[in-house]
Every structure is written in C-alpha cells, then in structure tokens.
Design a protein around this nucleic acid. Structure first.
Lengths: 337, 337
DNA sequence: GACATTAACGTAAACGTTTACGTAAAACGC
DNA sequence: GCGTTTTACGTAAACGTTTACGTTAATGTC
C-alpha cells in the first residue's frame, strides 16, 4: 500500500500535523525537523493522497470539460488549449463526450457533480435551462466556449456574424457577384443563424440581392453535408462563381463535389471555409478560410475558469477572440484576368 | 452546501448506515423505509460525494490517459474510443497531454498517482524504464495503445510490420515496380522501424531490389515532413511511379508537393498512406491507405483496462487489431492501360 | 411458550488528510 | 529573574462516506 502521512510521521518521529505543515509549506518547524521529515518522505516514497485532501479542502483540483464529440477536429484543438491552461493552473481535466445528446449531458453533469469538480468548461452545445439549473446547484464556475447563452455565463468565442460577414465581403472584393452559401442549421444559434445572417447582410450591404435560393441549410457541418449541398446550390444558382461554407469540413466536401463534377477550384469556382482546421492547409487546393484560434480559445477558457475558481475574479469576464481570414488557394481573384 | 448523507438520515429519521445501504442497493431495510429515504433524497437533492467514497473504497472510478498530443487527429480518435469504453464501464477519464517530452510524462504520472486513478492508458509514446517503475509503484493496471514495450504490459495495436508489408504488396500488385517510401524515424520502434522493414521485405519478396536510395526517414509524421520528403525522393528515384508514406499526413503532404510540381496523382504518381484518418477521404484525390481502427483501438484498450480494474481478468490480454487497405483514388492500376 | 434464527436497523471506527486549539519550551523585555 | 510573547510542536476534530459489529424486535420451530 502507499505510505500515508502517518507512516512518515512515525518514521521521522514527529506528529502528522508537522508533516502536513512541511508538505504544505506552512510555518511552524525548525530546519532540522524539516530535513528529517523530507528524508522520511524520500525514504518511504510518500505521495499525499489527493482524495483525502479533496475531502477536507472541498477542492479536487479537477475540472470537467463537456464536448459534443471528442474526436471532431474542432473539439480536439479546443481541448488541447483547455488542458494546457488547466495544467498550468494546477488542475486536471476530465473529458466528457456528450455526443450531442441531451440525455448524456445531464448524466455527465451529475457525474461531475458527484466527483466534485471545481469548475466546468462547456463547449459547442446549446445551454438548455435544465443544464443551467444544474450549474447553479453545483455552485461551481462555468465557462462556455464557442457558445453563448441566454444565461449570464462567461464565454469565449469569435463573433460568428462578423466572421461570416467578412468572409462574404472578401469574396465580393475579389469580384464575385454570384455567391452561394452552404449554411448550417436555422436551429443553431451559434454556428447556424449568425453565419447565415452575416452572409446575407454582407451581400445586401454591397448591393447584391439575396434570395433564399442561394443558400442551403444543413443539420450538421460535416464533409458529407458540404458534398451533398454543392450540387443543390449549383442547381439553384447556375452562374455561381463562389461559395461560402459555414465550416471547413463542408467547404472541403464542396470541393470534393466540384472535383467530381469536373468543376475546377478555384478557376471555375471559388470556395471559402470557416474554422481553419488543420485540414484546411492540407487539402488541394489549400483552403482559404476564416480562422478561429481554436487552441487559444480553449486556453483562454481554461485560464478564465482557473481564475474564477481561485476566486481572483468575482465577475465573469467574457472574451471575443479575433478571427482572421487566411488566404490560401481556393479563391480566385476575378478582377485580375 | 450540498446535502450530505447525514442530512438525508435526519430528514428521513433513520441512521446514515441505512441511507448508505439504500443508496448502494445493499439489503437490510423494509420497503417503507426505502421509500422514506428515497423521498428524503429527492427532497434534498442529495448526491453522494464521490470523493468521500473514493477515500474509503480506495477506488476513484477514474482512469488517466496519456497522449503525446491531444489534438493530433490520431490521438483524438483513440481518445474518443477510450472515453466511450470508460464511460460504459463507469469510469471517468482524465486526459494528460505529454507533448512528447519525458519530463512532463513523469510529472503527469505523479499527478495521476496522487489523484489515485484506478488505471492508466498509455498511448503512442515509448515506455521508458522510468515510467515502468512508476507503474509498478502505483499498483494499477496499465494498457498500452499503439505501442508495445520491452515490459510485460498489455497492449492494443495493429501489426505495423504487416500493415506496411501489405501496403507495399498492394502497390506491387497494381503493377508498380519503382516504389519509394516516405518513412518515419529509425529511433521509433513503433511507427518507424517496423513500417520501413515491412516495406523493404515486401519489395525483396517480390524480387524488387531495395536500396536505401528509395526511402527517406523523418523525425515526425506530419504534413510538412511528407511535403519536404517527396522532392528528395524524386531526386533519388526519378522513375518512381508509386510512394508509400508511413502516415496519412505525410501522404497528403506528398500529394501537396506533387501538385506543386505539376505531377498528377494518381496518373503519374500513386500514393498510399497509413492510418486512415478522417482527412484521408476528404482530400483530393481521396487517399488509399492502410486503415487502423483508431476508435476501436481506444475502445478496446478502455475495455481491457476496465476489466483489469474490476479484477475480472488476472492476466493481461493483448490485442492485435486488424488493419485493412481502404482503396480510394490515389493509386493507379498500371496493369490496365 | 421457550428458544433459536433472521431481519432491520443503529453505533462507531476507519479512510488520509487539514487545521483549530492547547501546551511546553524558548526567546524576549525590563 | 520574572512575566510576556513567540515558536515549535502535538492532540483531536472534522470532511462524507462504508462497513463490521451490536442490539432489538420480529419470525420461526418444536
């Protein structure tokens, strides 16, 4: 069995209180006894038991992270950032894969409650009232990433409306007039509606009229969605020269569809994506896209959470992260000939 | 504060022992008292404290997973499988990003030891003697995934030698005779050496001679490594018609380089990868590759670990997972004209 | 009806820490 | 040298559970 503080105390001929003080760097002992105790710790290979500590301190030094899918390339980059920040702040992270099903989310939240995590990072999924109630019960800080909510919870995200607006403007500036969009879901208040609205508004601002003929909406944001959407869009908008996809995966799906149809990218069709996943620079032609700093977002969220847990900040500090448009090879400049 | 078992006991006019028995489904109470207690639990919103439970049971229902990088597409798929299996077995998972630096690995192992995790999944990285010593100290089961080791630890992996051998044979069967390889590191006993050896042996078995001119070795397995390797390989082997890359990322990097050089894939150059990441089907042309069932591997590793923890199996059961060659569009059949 | 057995609880110790409080000795002030 | 303060500890309670053991009452046996 692992040695306990009691074993160390006995070995060093002191009380457990003294050992505890030394381990925790509190005052109240001579240099001599400190050395004695440290030798005992060394000799026995003593490791404090974080469980016992957690019980009395009511701090587990652990946070929970909820993702709708762990292996999504988006989630995994955010996760890396979170883990990084958490580790720097002295916390471990428990990952929970909610698989975008509400039932499992609640189950996980209950689990995290039983495990007495010190804080929660909630990603991508919409915050239902049911979840919010549990947050309140739990009495621990929560930080949202890539999500906002009707509730007053701190979040870290980029401005999706603005990102979509700028992406669309970018295409317009390159001389495109017939632009289509492969959009997300109208039920999705994060990656869905704002990006579609941004697209529409940008068109209208620049005097191009918008009809719902030039947009498809999709349940998901996956490769397949994009691949299936492009032909539909081409039907409705045969003269289309450029398309804005609400995610990189969809953009790349659209590119695949274009290849199949014998449409050359970017010569005949320009494509711009959204996210800047690692695949964006790997595909051919390399994808021009709106870059979300995913890892940094995770990092930021982690840092904010740690601060809230340590009680340094009372009030929830939210952050909009800057997006940028990363120019690669999938968009053609129509003004040059 | 969260209500404790004591609050429930008081509310229901019973002892804490009775509450504990009911919560844990042990016998020793009437239906009446059970109902009373359950009402009390409901009324107070009682959740058992997993920390206190862990202290007395010496079981935290938590496992640790160590990855060299969380956001790698490879790791994240494995992670999803692990998380799945763990959750099904009633365990939570703590992720640790070791960033392929030994120093951090040890630190993380110590942390997991303090947190008293019930088991460990160790991925991708080589098991140094130092790590193994800690494993032994910790007295918890360990399962390796995508790694073997000199120590007697159960593992889940595919046979890399065999996979590379078959990939090479596949190219040969398609009529290729001038085949190059973009390899990994000679220091890497998992993804490096066996895949290169498999390549070489397959060539020799089929009467094609092998010189080290037809292989590059790389530190990493990334897009850039592949992109930089292809021109080198073409220098050494100008008549090359096919190339085997030791990872999908490298294969896709090679594809990007080919595009840049104006070499058409697969018409002029065939490429086969290794891993079957999600990007493999997203790139253009879609990548033919050796498929490792990453998610299933994670799942398997998780299941084995859970079994070991629950003590159902005494002995370490290792598993070789089946690989398959997924045919897509990046390899040309030279025998047809 | 006397006795043994079983069921339904309650009491208290234990898990490994932290920490408030007590105490004895040392250090200090004069 | 005496009272006071400080220092260096030790003692024991507390954190929220589980569980061995004890107790009482109900049930069963003849």
């Amino acid at each position: 069995m692992n040695p306990t503080i009691k074993d160390v105390a006995k070995y060093a001929n002191v009380s457990i209180a003294t050992v505890s003080r030394i381990v925790n760097g509190l005052p109240g002992y001579t240099e001599d006894t400190k050395k004695k105790v440290q030798e005992a710790i060394e000799a026995l290979g003593y490791q404090p038991n974080a469980i016992a500590r957690g019980l009395i301190n009511k701090r587990t030094q652990t946070i929970g992270v909820l993702f709708p899918e762990v292996s999504g390339m988006l989630s995994s980059e955010v996760l890396e950032g979170v883990e990084n920040a958490a580790h720097d702040g002295g916390f471990s992270v428990i990952v929970c894969n909610t698989t975008s099903s509400g039932k499992r989310t609640v189950k996980y939240l209950r689990l995290l409650q039983e495990k007495r995590v010190d804080g929660i990072i909630f990603a991508s999924e919409n915050v239902k009232e049911e979840y919010y109630k549990i947050f309140q019960e739990m009495q621990v800080p929560v930080v949202l990433v890539s999500t906002a909510s009707q509730f007053n919870l701190p979040f870290v995200r980029v401005d999706d409306y603005e990102g979509a607006f700028r992406a669309t403007e970018y295409l317009i500036q390159k001389g495109h007039k017939q632009i289509g969009m492969i959009g997300g879901s109208f039920e999705d208040p994060i990656a869905g509606v704002p990006r579609m609205k941004g697209f529409q508004d940008a068109l209208e601002k620049h005097g191009l009229d918008f009809t719902d003929q030039q947009m498809t909406s999709n349940e998901g944001y996956r490769f397949q969605n994009g691949k299936e959407s492009l032909p539909l869009l081409l039907d409705k908008l045969p003269l289309m020269t450029a398309v804005f996809a609400a995610s990189d995966e969809m953009a790349i799906g659209a590119m695949a569809a274009a290849h199949q149809l014998g449409i050359r990218v970017p010569e005949e069709l320009s494509i711009i994506g959204y996210d800047n996943l690692k695949i964006a620079e790997m595909c051919y032609p390399a994808l021009t896209t709106v870059s979300q700093p995913l890892k940094e977002m995770g990092q930021s969220a982690g840092e904010i959470l740690v601060k809230l847990i340590k009680g340094k900040e009372k009030e929830a500090e939210s952050r909009y992260m800057p997006f940028t448009i990363v120019e690669r090879q999938s968009v053609r400049d129509l003004r040059k000939k």
